[in-house]
Every structure is written in structure tokens, then in C-alpha cells.
Write a protein that binds this DNA or RNA. Structure first.
Lengths: 334, 334
DNA sequence: TTGAAAGCGGTACCAT
DNA sequence: ATGGTACCGCTTTCAA
């Protein structure tokens, strides 16, 4: 492997000049820069990342703590990961992948070893045990999610409460007066995953404000789970005509179950889905849906990490939900 | 941040002694080791990864090149990623995540910068443009997949051909004489993804050897795509009674479509699915399926990378498929 | 505009 | 069993 010394020799300059030519931190004459770049190309020179991080105290690597566990909807997780990785590359950073199951220890290990410049942390719980650790670290953090207390840390997420309200509002606009939320599994609520709670809160608040009935039931992501949840809705609020599904895996199942029980979408009942557009486009009936802007949020997270590295203060940004009308919502049947 | 010098001072020894106490590359008296570890704990010392990699020429980081956006079934990809990350940690390595869309350049960048010790590469195409690059690198590579020529590189994958044969054999055992493969989308075949071809080959060979009819049709992963593929089967081989689905997203759709056209599973037709067990357990009918042992393969990949780093020669390992009988296969109807 | 050289924090060789 | 120290390859101050 060619080193900076080799490049310097080949270009007939000092190593410092090569270094500066690369970093642009001091003016270099065009001619010199020319020769240096020629030498670099010829030798196939690449700076040694370790040496660089040792001398400069920055790694150009971002740690991404992701939940590779799969009680979450995997395609969306993956979209976040891809978005962060892509954005990181656009900022000339690489991504070190941390699995959430390593917990706080993993963060400390990576930070202590000076392996990364900053952290992006996904799947944040209301009182996440990683938060106190992250606050102590020398490296800045961006959370994807919104914990109870975010002081000192940047946060970015979909505005889940607004999302819940938006879903209800859409059904209200269509005249529905009894709506149900088929939500995430009980485990998601218990774990303190903030998005589950915030969405349900938005759902319930909007229903109350609109003066309609709203029933929220959690749902296990399986055929039987959906059947159980739907049965609950049919029992506790039998005249429900508007459904909000915040549980990707059961979307298809719900549609089949509704049809099987003689309810046509959108003639008899309306459905608003929350999830990626593919999910909404997949079924036979194209679903009116609210997307999860994972790409945008992931990119923002990296942007905000860059801001923190540039010395700016932590901030919280909530992305507004956007509803796409398709074919699954109609006026309430008389 | 405490450095090794601080630790040495605190323990009243030389830095080399601290270094050796940590690496275990030379004997240290129990008493000394004791004092050193006490000092380390007290100071919260962590070796600087960059300094270490500079001096030792190894990073304890593994690069994982993963397809983060594609027509592949995301949950399985994720399972591979999780398995590799977990196994890497078990080997005291971290994972640097590379997205396949960076292509060969990404590999060269990371290798050139001495950022990793080895590569694990997913989603390998028959004549993958990354292969020649990987062969040139100083760092060893393990491919998850099986390209046309694997010389110089280690490979690990499910034995897809055996998987295709196993699926057919199971249907043959139940007396079926006309079977159909609902396969991956055309794009997967065109991209030269090796598993798509190998599976179909196994399917076709086994059908031929058993003297039964076998029809393979690709399938777009959507409601309409499945409808089109099923229509093709119904036209070209109307008496088909055995289905093999090698296309996770349409499994549920296929089941509904069969029912909608009056075919009961397993009474009228049998179905063998290829994919994770959750997929097989999800639908109303529990599906007989052949799993994709992503955890095992991911762990093996890391194991094999460790082998290469230890100086052993590249090898190819194909994992045997395992079929789990559930409720979707019955004897052919008379 | 450019060069020389002192670190950065470890590892591992050479001594004792 | 332990210590001293020359690197590893780059960044950045200090000088010119």
C-alpha cells in the first residue's frame, strides 16, 4: 500500500503539502496540486483510516444502532438503515452497524474505542436505558424517535400524533362516526416504543375532538391475531365503519377478513393504512395510506448528526405525515 | 480519554507490559496483571481503535456488503445481516455496513483505507463485477452466494439446487404428477442472481428425473403479478396440483387466489413454500415449507472469514435444505 | 506557497 | 517476567 510519503516523493513535495492538498486546509498552487493528484492516481493511494483518525481525532464513520430484532416491520427498518447509509455516504462517512441488542455496552465500547464520530440510534423507547449513556459520551447523538426527555440529544421522527389525528380526520371527513385502530402488538406498547403510544394518542384525541367513537385494539401480527382483534372490534363497537391499520403485516389479512365477513371496501367500510406505499399498492384494493417517510427521516438524522459535529446545538424535528388517497375510503354507508 | 500510558503509570509498569497484558502475547505475572486490570477499570481505559489498527495492521472490523434496496425479500436480507453482525461480535469484530449500490468502488475504498480485515458479500450475481475486484484485495472475502467461478474466494449458501429438488420430491412423494413453480420476478433471473437459477434448475431436473411435468413461471411480487403467473399456469398446465412458491411476498396472495378459484389446500392442490418459518406459520393454513437458514449461513460466513484471516484456504460450503411438513400438502386428488 | 518535525496511541522487537 | 523504544501513517503547528 502506498503511503503519503510515497505520494510526496513521487510528486516531489513534502508530506505536509500532500496532506494539505487533500484536506484543502491551506492553499496549494495549481501546479503542485496537479502533480500530487497525478501521483495519487498513479500509486492508487488511499489514506489509512486508522492513521488519519489517530492524528485528526475523527473517523468519518457514523455508528448506526438498529433494531435487527423482528417484532418490528422489517421493510421499514431496512428503509431507515438504507437511508442513513446512503446519506452518510453523501457526507463522506461510512456506517458502523450496531445491533440494539448490545444495548448501552455496545455504545460505550464503540465510543470508547474512538471508532465513530457520532451515533444515530433507532427504536428509542420512552425511557431508553441508552439515553443516559449517550448523554455522557463525547460523541454526539441523533435519535430516530422521541423519548420522554430528549435534552442534550437531537431527535427526528415522524409526527406520530399528527399521523393518528390525520387518519381519523380523513375518516371523519368521509362521515364515519365509529372508527377502530388496529394497532401494533401489545409488546410494542409495553416496550415503551414511543411511536405506538403517540399514534394511539393522536387517534384517540382526534376521535374525541371530532365527537365520534374511536376504539383502539392492539394486534398480534398473524392471521389469528388479526382475527382476535377484529372480533374485539366487532364485539365492543359493532357498528364500526372506519378502520385504521397501524400494523403492516396484517393489512392484507384484515382486508380478507373484512371481505369474508361480508364487508366490502370501500362500500361498507373504509380503511386507512399506515405504512410504506408498496403495502398500500400491493393488495387488490389500493389502500388510502399514510406513508412512513423513512428516507427523509434517515437523511435528516444524518444531516442533524453533521450539524452536531459542526458544533450546532441539539434539536428536535418532527416530520409531518402525508396521506395519499387511493381507493379504500368512501362515504359512510347510510 | 485515558491512554495506555496513563494505565501504565497507574499500574506502575511499562506500556509494553500493559499491551502484552491485554493481548496475552507474552506471559505476565498474576500480580502485575491484577494491577493493570485494576488501573484499566479505574480509568475506564479503551484502546484507541485507530492507533491499534495503525500499529497492528488489523482493525477487528468486518465489512458487510448488503443489498439494502432491491427486489429481494427484505426480512430474509435482514436476518442475514443480523446473523453476520451477531457472529462478528462473537468473534470480537464490528461490522461496517456497505450498500451494494456502491458496487466495486465501495469495496476498494474501504479496503484501500484499511478500514476492515475482511469482506462478507451478499447478493452475489453469477458474473458479479465485484468478484475481480475482491480477488485483488489484500483482505479476504466470503461470498454469501455461489457465482460462476469462485476461485480464490470462500462461498457459503443454501444448496438451492437441492432445495428445488427437495420441493419437487415432496410433491412427487404425495403422488403429484404436474407441478408448478411460482418463482422470483423476471428481474431476479435477469440480474443473474444465482439462487433463482439454481433453484429452478433443481426444480426442473427433479421433475424430469421423476418423470412428471414441471412448469416454472416467474412472478412479480404483487396481487396482479401473482394473478398473471397463476393464469399462465392454468393455461399452460391446467391440471397442476402441486405448487412450489419461491417468492415470499405472494405466498398469501397465492393461497387466496387458489381458494378464490375453487381449489382447496391441501385437498385439491398442495403447496410447498420456500422462505422463513414465520411466512409458513402466518397464513390460515400452515404451510409445508423449506426454510432459508439465514442465521446459520450468516454465522458460517463469519466463521469462514475468520478461517481465511487465520491463513486457511478458501472453501465453498453449501448448506443442505430442510423441509418442515405442515398442513399444505396432501395426496393428489383422484 | 511550502517544508520539517512533533505528536496521535498503540504494537512488537530488542534488551535485560 | 518486564522495560525501552522504534515504528505504523497521517495531521498540524511552527518556520521559512
Amino acid at each position: 500500500m502506498a503511503t503519503i510519503v510515497d505520494v510526496a516523493k513521487a510528486a516531489g513535495v513534502s508530506v505536509s503539502t500532500v496532506s494539505y492538498a487533500l484536506s484543502g486546509r491551506r492553499p496549494i498552487s495549481a501546479a503542485t496540486r496537479e502533480r500530487i493528484h497525478a501521483a495519487i492516481d498513479e500509486l492508487g493511494y488511499r489514506p489509512h483510516a486508522g492513521a488519519r483518525s489517530l492524528a485528526s481525532r475523527q473517523t468519518r464513520v457514523l455508528a448506526l444502532a438498529a433494531p435487527l430484532r423482528s417484532d418490528l416491520y422489517v421493510p421499514v427498518i431496512m428503509q431507515f438503515v438504507a437511508a442513513v447509509a446512503t446519506a452518510a455516504r453523501a457526507h463522506d462517512h461510512d456506517v458502523l452497524l450496531l445491533m440494539n441488542d448490545e444495548g448501552p455496552a455496545g455504545l460505550e465500547r464503540v465510543a470508547g474505542g474512538s471508532m465513530v464520530d457520532a451515533f444515530v440510534v433507532m427504536d428509542v423507547a420512552t425511557n431508553d436505558p441508552r439515553l443516559p449513556v449517550l448523554r455522557q459520551l463525547r460523541e454526539p447523538t441523533v435519535l430516530i424517535g422521541l423519548p420522554a426527555r430528549a435534552d442534550g440529544l437531537s431527535c427526528v421522527d415522524l409526527d406520530w400524533e399528527a399521523t393518528g389525528r390525520l387518519a381519523v380526520q380523513h375518516l371523519v371527513d368521509h362521515g364515519h362516526t365509529a372508527v377502530a385502530l388496529v394497532g401494533p402488538p401489545p409488546a410494542a406498547y409495553e416496550r415503551g416504543t414511543t411511536y405506538a403510544h403517540r399514534f394511539r394518542t393522536g387517534f384517540e384525541v382526534a376521535a374525541a375532538e371530532a365527537g365520534i367513537r374511536g376504539l383502539a385494539v392492539p394486534c398480534e401480527p398473524s392471521h389469528d391475531g388479526l382475527a382476535a382483534s377484529l372480533a374485539r372490534v366487532d364485539t365492543e363497537q359493532p357498528d364500526t365503519t372506519g378502520f385504521v391499520v397501524h400494523n403492516e403485516p396484517v393489512v392484507g389479512t384484515l382486508l380478507h377478513a373484512l371481505k369474508a365477513t361480508g364487508r366490502e371496501v370501500p362500500h361498507d367500510v373504509s380503511v386507512v393504512a399506515v405504512g410504506p406505499h408498496e403495502l398500500a399498492e400491493g393488495p387488490a384494493i389500493r389502500l388510502t395510506s399514510i406513508g412512513i417517510p423513512a428516507d427523509e427521516i434517515g437523511a435528516l438524522a444524518v444531516e442533524m448528526a453533521a450539524d452536531l459535529l459542526a458544533g450546532r446545538s441539539p434539536q428536535t424535528r418532527l416530520v409531518a405525515p402525508r396521506l395519499v388517497e387511493r381507493d379504500s375510503c368512501g362515504p359512510m354507508r347510510a
